[in-house]
Nucleic acid binder design. Structure first.
Lengths: 256, 256
DNA sequence: TACCGCTTGTGAACGCTTGCACAAAGTCGG
DNA sequence: CCGACTTTGTGCAAGCGTTCACAAGCGGTA
């Protein structure tokens, strides 16, 4: 049931090197993984990395699910998308799981990152230790302000936005991060795309127009705030309304 | 069909003040709005605000959907969750729509924000203009380092984390932002919760444990990167695999 | 070797979300 | 005043993701 797409695919299974599992299987599976599951796999990986450091060698779905804040059935299903690497009656080997998730997420290759827009956020991103430590070295910084170019930020030189194509090609940038003001975002995006960057993380509060082959993820801090605001308002309304019943929605008592 | 929950609810409809629509209806509707729709409403609001500045007074679902990057049917359904405020044959009055979305999202009240952890990211957040301009004034900053306390950042004084309860109460903080290293995040979270903060935006790469009545949203930059990495890998695999058919998955030609 | 208890992996049901298609409802031109 | 045209609002069906529940499989033990 897992791989319904393409039983007759054109992938040639190399006869040698197929000791434990076939690369073609990994490839087929990667396509069937739901978007939501991919996001969770990244979380599992983070938790598991912490486990490795603590010297944990084996973990059950129940434990891992608890640490990752999800249902254990969901965790097992998520892991089943990438194959069966657990041992019934025992659990999962932590290191094996880490290496398989890393492979599925494509973390065996380095992904160089370019940050465009060296304002407050750009500075923070350039200095953020979480990227290099997880396999995403910041390889290039760009800004339109000539006063900023040349001066390194976090040890990385800032280049002018006009040099984006050559610099990105040179340093093999595969992910572009847009941290510019909203007015500039679309233009920067277009330049990144024409520089060959196919994955973009957008912090600017605008909807970017890109070709189909480009993947965009957006992080809009104000939207996150507004979603929280909605919940505040909803809660306040419940307090004014349903609390006459003594209990809020979902059986949760307000301020227990 | 809309409000299936609680036909016999204890909400008293105030007889006066019920000119155009009843407040109780707004309250009932807010609960029925799907989470995904709430996130999109925030996006619509942003687009609409831009329209107002451009002097646009009326907009059709088709236009707005295009600008927000969604299907027009989905947009109409999202708007129907908050009521019928469009005119058939014409479209939506931009200002009316803006004010209704603002009301639903609870943006009629100010939501003061506290940022904890004045490192790179905390600095950027304190200086970020996007918060105050959209009704989320940063009212307090906290750090554990005594060298930082007292020195204002972005015009806001930095207080010591130990004063979090009194300062939050004093300045009516309703949203806490965690921008600390991962090791400190859970402790900070606990302190925010005991200070009465019920909404938290977490930038630290850890899964926070909170009581049921607290709403947490997380932004994990490394996870975003890894999701992009997954798509890079998938694309590379397709290039090695399915492209023998000439066309990638979904009929999209790789690098057209 | 055979049994027992534990945990995985997954078929199946459920619920939420999306997209379609069309009736209802309003405007505009004659 | 009427008819044609435009656009909203929504019932309905399809798709996707989540959850449940349990058979299958493995290690430990006698």
């Amino acid at each position: 049931m897992a791989a319904q797409r393409g039983e007759g695919d054109g992938v040639v299974t190399r006869p040698g090197e197929t000791g434990t599992e076939a690369p073609a299987d990994v490839r087929e599976r990667a396509r069937a993984i739901p978007e939501a599951a991919v996001a969770r796999l990244a979380v599992y990986l983070r938790v598991l990395s912490g486990m490795v450091e603590q010297g944990v060698t084996t973990i059950s779905s129940e434990e891992l699910a608890g640490a990752a804040g999800v249902n254990s059935a969901k965790l097992r299903k998520d892991l089943s998308y990438i194959g069966s690497y657990g041992t019934r009656g025992v659990g999962y080997d932590v290191e094996v799981l880490v290496s398989h998730i890393e492979r599925i997420l494509g973390l065996t290759r380095k992904h160089s990152v370019a940050v465009v827009g060296i304002g407050n956020l750009g500075h923070a991103l350039a200095n953020y230790g979480g990227f290099p430590s997880r396999g995403f070295p910041v390889a290039a910084l760009f800004d339109i302000d000539p006063d900023l170019t040349g001066v390194p930020v976090g040890g990385i030189p800032v280049d002018h936005i006009d040099d984006i194509t050559t610099v990105c090609a040179e340093r093999e940038v595969s992910i572009g991060v847009i941290a510019t003001p909203p007015q500039a975002a679309q233009a920067v995006c277009d330049r990144l795309v024409s520089a060959g960057v196919q994955c973009i993380l957008n912090f600017a509060p605008v909807v970017l127009q890109v070709p189909d082959y480009v993947e965009v993820r957006k992080v809009d801090l104000a939207v996150e705030m507004q979603i929280l605001s909605f919940h505040v308002a909803r809660r306040a309304d419940e307090a004014a309304g349903d609390v006459v019943n003594g209990i809020g929605v979902d059986g949760v008592v307000i301020r227990p």
